[in-house]
Nucleic acid binder design. Sequence first.
DNA 1: CCAAATTTTTAGACAAGTCTAAAAAAACGA
DNA 2: TCGTTTTTTTAGACTTGTCTAAAAATTTGG
Lengths: 216, 216
Amino acid sequence: MNTLAEENYLKAIYHLSLNDLNVSTNQIAAALCTKAASVTDMLKKLADKELINYERYQGVTLTAVGEKIALQIIRRHRLWEYFLVEKLNFKWDEVHEMAEELEHISSVELVDRLDKFMDYPKHDPHGDPIPDRDGNFKKHELIPVASLKLNEAGIISGVRDHSPGFLQYLDKQQLIIGKKIKITDIIAYDNSMILQVETIAIHISRDVAKNLLVAI
Amino acid sequence: MNTLAEENYLKAIYHLSLNDLNVSTNQIAAALCTKAASVTDMLKKLADKELINYERYQGVTLTAVGEKIALQIIRRHRLWEYFLVEKLNFKWDEVHEMAEELEHISSVELVDRLDKFMDYPKHDPHGDPIPDRDGNFKKHELIPVASLKLNEAGIISGVRDHSPGFLQYLDKQQLIIGKKIKITDIIAYDNSMILQVETIAIHISRDVAKNLLVAI
DNA sequence: CCAAATTTTTAGACAAGTCTAAAAAAACGA
DNA sequence: TCGTTTTTTTAGACTTGTCTAAAAATTTGG
Ligand SMILES: [Mn+2]
Ligand SMILES: [Mn+2]
Ligand SMILES: [Mn+2]
Ligand SMILES: [Mn+2]
């Protein structure tokens, strides 16, 4: 239906739209590791297909149709990640690149059966919500650990940084999705924090605290 | 590593090599639904990469490296087909097109884990052998039902025609992989046959008998 | 064995997606 | 406000893979 390149553009625009209402050419180029000139070319094609709203120099938004397609691709990506972790026993830092390929497998029936096979998971291994076949999902309100106050508690529910390095670090520290944490100290000097996780105390930097998300 | 188009050419050449030692340009064009001129172009590229042995007008054979790649793709195709049937409950006539896409997912680790997850199946849903990670497989000697004589028996173990229509027909007639059959009559007029399958007698045409394979 | 039919290759073109370099528009800032 | 910087678009080129039409090589059969 759409080419692999088109799907990647739509997905990138969707993700960027979560932070900025209007997405710029340069933002897209950075997200896809391509050049602004290439992006402009593709934006014209996507606009012709009415998947995005685009006026020269004005940035873009997804149309309803474009957003629906983006959500289908994100659904596939997250379901495959869940499959790789839960069924094939990959670690959560190993699955993204494979999912980047698998998300382009086109069969709708396949992804629906995969969803059923895994009993309709609501979140991927990184805590991100999995849209249902109609593109609907509940966006849970998560906050960074960095914004918790002393003695406040939360349940680890997501990450802002999806890089393997960060995920591996969290794994090693036992900072895993679902675990309950509590802020037992905040070091004023560098804003680093000490968390109580089950019976252990863990010291994390401000950078880590900003990229680790909890539900409260 | 190799492009999608290159992988499809190598796979096609491999399959055609099973019937003819030297594979012709036109055979490849027919197999891939493309034109002879396009095939010639691609053969030059594959020869440059030393994946095929090619001299103008002489047809092609796979090099050892080319064959290894072809077998990896066939391994992926058949493992995914097995997954789709055994885990996602697709029917054997529904899986080929999806496997045509899935076979190009590049991760070696993924396919090895999938293999393990399914407990190392030896044959795909159509009875075709699944190469192991090194490309090795046992080629069982199958013969068409058409070459059986009166009162000879065999176990349904494969098909020569993989089209959905043929597979659906076999399903409906209960002519399923693993079932034991015995020739109880051969009608001289049109060479059609009557098979005993468990408690029922089934009348099949010569065409069907030629495309249904048994182990004896 | 040679003319005709068939197969294969070459030549030239096109679409998708990318790039660099340069021009145009927009945004910034003194 | 107006010159400078940044962003975006255009222009032109390249790669991959495809096509049609025509030329060249091979095969076939009388
Ligand atoms: Mn991912
Ligand atoms: Mn994820
Ligand atoms: Mn198949
Ligand atoms: Mn098969």
